[in-house]
Write a protein that binds this DNA or RNA. Sequence first.
DNA 1: ACTCAAATCCAAAGCGCTTTGGATAATTTA
DNA 2: TAAATTATCCAAAGCGCTTTGGATTTGAGT
Lengths: 368, 368
Amino acid sequence: MVTWAVPEKTVNLKQLSKHLGLSQTTVSRALNGFPEVSEKTRQKVRLAADKFNYRPSPSASSLATGKARIIGHVVPVSEHRMINPHFSDFLAGASDAYAQAGYDLLIRAAQPDEEAGIYRDFVSRNRVDGVVVHGPRVNETRIEFLQSIGLPFVVHGRAGGEEHSYSWLDVDNRSAIEKLTNYLIDLGHRRIALINGLETMNFAHRRRLGYEAALQDHGIDVDPVLISSRDMNEPYGYEATMAKLDMPNPPTAFIYSSVLSALGGMRAANMRGLLPGQDISLATFDDRLSFLQSGGGENGGKKGGDSANGVMGAGSTPYMTSVSSSIQDAGRRVGEMLMDQISNPGTPPVCELWKTDLIIGTTTGKPA
Amino acid sequence: MVTWAVPEKTVNLKQLSKHLGLSQTTVSRALNGFPEVSEKTRQKVRLAADKFNYRPSPSASSLATGKARIIGHVVPVSEHRMINPHFSDFLAGASDAYAQAGYDLLIRAAQPDEEAGIYRDFVSRNRVDGVVVHGPRVNETRIEFLQSIGLPFVVHGRAGGEEHSYSWLDVDNRSAIEKLTNYLIDLGHRRIALINGLETMNFAHRRRLGYEAALQDHGIDVDPVLISSRDMNEPYGYEATMAKLDMPNPPTAFIYSSVLSALGGMRAANMRGLLPGQDISLATFDDRLSFLQSGGGENGGKKGGDSANGVMGAGSTPYMTSVSSSIQDAGRRVGEMLMDQISNPGTPPVCELWKTDLIIGTTTGKPA
DNA sequence: ACTCAAATCCAAAGCGCTTTGGATAATTTA
DNA sequence: TAAATTATCCAAAGCGCTTTGGATTTGAGT
């Protein structure tokens, strides 16, 4: 445990400089690492600063510099009024990056019609230095708007259209699902269901394209009844799976866009007495949400590429077959990209497309 | 969609007051609802303010007033480096309350040894006006510390010891699990496993007490091998359940402290070919995490007491037997309590103990 | 020793808001 | 109508920091 010591009185810059017999200018410069101050006085100042427990006031320095050292996240409050676990894992990564660099993380919940006002609010009085754009849609309007008001931003995901005019980080959703679909086709499956997210979302749209591409490559017709598109959660996965199992010519394999709906799919299979991997094949896109990870989240590598041990793996054996990419690592990286952009304005946009790992678990097999 | 209109130049107070031919004082007072300004000039000012798109600078007003209009959440970064879904649902509720009242939500991730420093940082230069204390432990040191530095706070949960010296909101964990245990005993179960959270956490400690009380009331010995205590996630639920099923005299019923581990429990049952409700009984404490809720989170009522339709209910039929209370509603209420405390300093602490609903699902039944 | 440049340091002017302590104009009261 | 309120409004002083434009000191160069 740490020193929950007696709270010292905290001093401000004026008091501190008086104690030191220096001007505020010098003290400020010493602490902020300016070259105009000699090394020995810098040391003296640093010592005194933490002896007197000096901390600069964020509002004062923000007012003076015009920089807030805060990054904003506008979380879309859908009708479902929820921050889903994907989002929170993303935040975990991002906040970690911010903490390293001395930034704070500000969250504002917004209904779709409030977003513009919030961004404008953010920029006009610089409450934040930049924002992360979450959940880009197929027709995305925020990007252009943010460019027009000049608020630095990084998109988690991408919009369609012009992709090099702004910074983004995305998973290669299309090829990920294509890979997964191909795997199932190679196993012998011909009727494969896609339990997708809302296809107004860009990521879901791209995943569908990957799915369709794989089928078409193998001369399999795309059957619309095998595809669902909704906000991803457990009950949706359950209901969609049940419904498809009840069809006259039911699918032999299911692909889920999220582990959340995959959980519902597993429940449905269970309910029907179907053993995954044997009677039915289940596969999912896996964001490596921490609450499903047995590794304890100690996924060391930066992009977390190698240490993946599979969704819901017990010990070292992966359970579900999946294509996976850590959304937490994505959050960290997006945070870094945004901070870079803030501190080096005018640099060209950075775009990163992350590959996914195909992990073979025990929930897939040849069709029954 | 809203007006993603052309970004107007934004003016500051000085410019606005010049346009109006009034002093900054009057304009400021008009906008902040002070009585010293006549109603007609107030109108005029309001009109001009949003015609010129005026928004006060948060840093400036924060500097002048000493109030940040920000509420801090220090999220403990365990070794598992995760923001779990419980936490994010809580945030969803809280941020909603803040948005109503014009507060912002600031998140700082902290390792245990950094917390003191962060709180001190928060208060010394008022970066935030108050904080929410998450995950109180059995021996909680933060409360005393926060009292000593005079930073307003509300605890989500409680510590032991003196309970009336600070504000908190807690679920009645003890009676909740007692209720659930009693229900299982009444069904005929004698060997009931408790897959608990980390018992250094206050809530988990209290839940265990409830469990033990119910057993002892019925003259059943508490068997320590039936109890697990760990950070709650899916793989833990799976592993603990598997391990207990492998015991010589295995339990016939399981109580999970979280739906996350309950999911793992269901997977284990499935893996063993045991049908919940038939061959084995599974029950859980349910925080009504939104991603497991079929109701779409439209749980209208303030405390969300009545509209509970059960964890993972499909349609209107609850699936798992549970005791439940909405953590999102808790977040909202905690936020309100904290804002009240901030705007009315000196009022006595407020403590709320929320009851839980017992919801009978299909995963419990008489012992096989 | 003398000049000039480099190294240090400082006083003071903001940043954009709130708020104190008056001033002025409008209204009432005597 | 003069005096006393009361209703409006304002100038200016902070809040705590950064930063500009100089002043002063030091050290090197000749």
